[in-house]
Design a protein around this nucleic acid. Sequence first.
DNA 1: GGTGACAATAGGTTTTATCTATACGAAGGA
DNA 2: TCCTTCGTATAGATAAAACCTATTGTCACC
Lengths: 294, 294
Amino acid sequence: MNIRDLKYLLAIKETGSFSRAAKQCYVSQPTLSGQVKKLEESLGVRIFERSSKQIIITAVGEQIIASAMKVIAEVERIDALADAAIDPLSGRFRLGAFPTLATYLFPGIVMPINTCMPDLKLILVEEKTQSLIDKLKSGQIDAALLALPVVDEQFKIKVLFDDYFRLAVKTDHKLANKSEIGQTSLLSKDLLLLEEGHCLRDQALEICSLMGANEEQDFRATSLETLRLMVKAGTGITLMPEIAMGLNKDRDEDGIRYIPFKEPRPKRTIGLVWRKTLIKTAVIDELIKILTHK
Amino acid sequence: MNIRDLKYLLAIKETGSFSRAAKQCYVSQPTLSGQVKKLEESLGVRIFERSSKQIIITAVGEQIIASAMKVIAEVERIDALADAAIDPLSGRFRLGAFPTLATYLFPGIVMPINTCMPDLKLILVEEKTQSLIDKLKSGQIDAALLALPVVDEQFKIKVLFDDYFRLAVKTDHKLANKSEIGQTSLLSKDLLLLEEGHCLRDQALEICSLMGANEEQDFRATSLETLRLMVKAGTGITLMPEIAMGLNKDRDEDGIRYIPFKEPRPKRTIGLVWRKTLIKTAVIDELIKILTHK
DNA sequence: GGTGACAATAGGTTTTATCTATACGAAGGA
DNA sequence: TCCTTCGTATAGATAAAACCTATTGTCACC
């Protein structure tokens, strides 16, 4: 048996045809046909039912192909291990973050990452939390910045920092002159929220315990910047994480006042999450250094 | 990369030498050396530090070899899948059972198994429960008859039958004329038990709640038959599962009376346990049929 | 300095994978 | 029914690779 042969099997399953599989593997159709036939003979079972019409995979075939996929994946892992050993801080690295964090965090970390790991081809992915978790699991991204808690057997997690919430109100809002705010003050109808799927929306709802009261609102913003503009326009108030406030946390900006909460200050805890089986853990270590030194 | 090359790696790790590995793989030493060298070159990393004294595996080497083992295991699985597809009821099958069950159950199932699966090379393994579980996990046996509950993610389990306990006493024992017995009657010092590690010992202790009282006993039998002989000799009484009583459950035998317990009658539940990843599940199905029709 | 153990190298042979060209078989259209 | 098309199988030649034996190189030990 040969690794190449197993790749042929996967290609046939994928393309549904010997000729197309051959093309995909950059070999001639007779070569691929011959190798598959030899494999079938050596195993003593038929993997494909051939006809000029279509290729049907036998029951054993499906099982064999499932195992073949695992073999190929592990072989690729060997390649990746070798690559990482040559230079653990080089190659492609895909880092994800959810939108209400990514917008404000990513700009500040590109430079330091580039300085610290010049050979790393960094790919930044901005998606909602669930999508990031899915992509982490399927290996489409290598690590993600997520709001904790994230509970999953196959992940490793490093707590990075707390991001406290403030209440963003227009400077002439009735709450604007308060120096601190209690959570009960949020029981108002003019609280603006993001659309479904944003973790910040869920956190805000949890903080405000407004589940029922808010269902009737028919406006759902798609970004925090939209919310900010609406606060500025006097449409309502919103929760704003400090990371989204810009540099001057204690001064008003753009006619908006960011009022801190009374203790216990509501917050979101940001952590770095990656698969236990990830190979380039050296990159993770560097990322943690950069993200905790902020 | 080639599956054969990965086997070379494992052989070198195993034998600690290129020449011995070559011998183990039935190739010449230069062949193996050459292939390993080529593999190292294609991966761009050194897997072994060579010297005339000893072979040292590099850090990447260890990782690569760990992956190589997974690849080989999965490749062997492909072979096994094919074999099972040709004839699912043929080949070697290793069935385990713990001693106090095996002695009485095994003799009765060899014939039916042989009749029903004539091409199956059945290997019967009699070991204590913990050893059977270890061997199941490591693939040294294919299935085991165990006293439930057995809780493990990687196992599948089929409940087979209940095996009720009776109290075995000498016919002239003071309890011998009772037709039924309560569990409190067991608070006696002459209860004989098996040595540590037998699940029957633990079950007996649990039933009697005699943990403390029994620690001082310095006699621990190694088999149920020894216990039976001692009961017959008048040394004491013991718990005996019905399966060990022979065919005549309601008559005395050998000067021993087997007294049933009052409800709820204490029992052990016997189940068939196998790895979820086992390939020859057709054999499992047949075994279940045979073992539940008893 | 000689010896033994072990890995690396050299050169030739065998095996295997691959190619192009062609045959075969089924389905669809004239 | 015949012809074309699409797809797989077969044949024969070529290129690549894995393998062998013989030999060299290297290090430790006596």
